[in-house]
Amino acid sequence: MPDAPPAATTPAVDEIRAVAAREGLHPAAVELEGVRDFLAVFLPAVEELAALLPAGGEGAGPAPLGLA
């Protein structure tokens, strides 16, 4: 069994550039490195949200359309 993947963290610059290439973005997208600073704060905070939920996917899923 492979090791569990690491928790989502800030994407590496290479990953950011790969996404820019995939999206066909302008070469100026190297400014994505500024985006990385934002993601370095945002993504770990989002990860912490999972701790609010029952483990193993138990409990309610997303609300049905229009009923949130």
Binding site: A8, L43, G59, A60, A63
Partner: peptide
């Protein structure tokens, strides 16, 4: 542009987690 770029990196798992936390 910066916010739109950042949004490309929100994982689907984070989006699904956010939907569940919204219900909570």
């Amino acid at each position: 542009r910066g916010r739109l770029l950042a949004g490309l990196f929100v994982p689907a798992t984070a989006y699904a987690t956010a939907l569940r936390v919204r219900t909570l």
